[in-house]
């Protein structure tokens, strides 16, 4: 076991009947990293994360989370991780404050419950029953319950689904602050700008396999062919090239001045992503 690795997954496999939900996933997440898992619906993100959280048994491959096998780890291990599930509700009859205080009591070194409530932006709703909150506010309770135990490793499965834009920005600040404290974070999301804003590294999952890993910058632009388009007499032409400057200089020489309708676009993370998951667009 290495102390710098928080999560190590190799050849992870999980079948449901005839479908392979996870089909040989390899991942390595260092301590203190913010790592994003992207992928279309049904890609296997939740299945992977829930195996690492100890909720589901794997059918094959290895998994090590904070140095232990998540399928066998005990209470002490659980006190070191924080979990925000994709789907969960809190007891609707209890108030936000009661709930967060109660969960704080499960952990050896909890955060101050009122501080946690403020961190997720629910100070005004602290005295309200969870059942009376809006969808996005209830989701923030999930986040509060996930971080109140002062986890070393935090799992966030689509944490910002249902957040308004301002709440999402606030949540990003929270994730950054946690990361600054040294918390390792594994996050799944459908929002590419979220992965770009938060993650140091990301992996794209499709059909239960990792189809790409890297930094958002590497996946998004640098090192990938740039698209150059311009108008010709026969219509519009588009060329993908690793050397766009050279191509534009050639075009300029041929045109003897301005190249009509010239655009040069670096692929965005979204372009790369759609390409990776096999979207024809």
């Amino acid at each position: 076991m290495s102390n710098d690795i928080a999560v190590r997954v190799d050849g992870l496999r999980k079948r449901y009947g005839n479908t392979c939900a996870v089909d040989g996933v390899e991942l390595e997440i260092g301590r203190g990293e913010v790592f994003a898992l992207l992928g279309p619906n049904g890609a296997g993100k939740t299945t992977t994360v829930e195996i690492l959280e100890g909720f589901r048994r794997r059918d094959g491959g290895g998994a090590e989370v904070l140095g232990e096998d998540p399928g066998r780890a005990g209470r002490a291990w659980r006190s070191r991780i924080g979990i925000v599930l994709q789907l969960a509700t809190a007891g609707p009859e209890l108030t936000v404050r009661e709930m967060v205080r109660h969960f704080a009591g499960y952990y050896p070194r909890p955060r101050d419950p009122d501080e946690v409530i403020a961190l997720v932006g629910l100070d005004e709703q602290a005295g309200q029953r969870v059942g009376a909150l809006s969808g996005g506010q209830a989701r923030r309770v999930d986040v509060a319950l996930g971080i109140v135990g002062r986890p070393e490793l935090l799992f966030l499965d689509e944490p910002t689904t249902g957040f308004d834009p301002q709440a999402r920005r606030q949540f990003w600040e929270l994730v950054r602050a946690l990361a600054a404290e040294g918390v390792t974070i594994l996050l799944t999301t459908h929002y590419l700008e979220e992965a770009e804003a938060l993650a140091g590294r990301l992996a794209v999952l499709a059909g239960g396999r990792v189809v790409a890993t890297g930094t958002p910058a590497a996946l998004g632009g640098a090192g990938r062919p740039t698209r150059v388009s311009w108008d010709t007499a026969d219509g519009r032409r588009t060329v993908r090239t690793p050397t766009p400057t050279q191509l534009v200089a050639d075009l300029a020489r041929q045109a003897g001045g301005e190249v009509p309708g010239l655009t040069v676009t670096r692929p965005t993370l979204e372009d790369t992503y759609l390409e990776l998951i096999g979207d024809p667009a």
Partner: peptide, 14 residues
Amino acid sequence: DQGMLKRLYGTPLP
């Protein structure tokens, strides 16, 4: 059904 038990299982609660 609503995931409360699952949530508890994910904590160090005995």
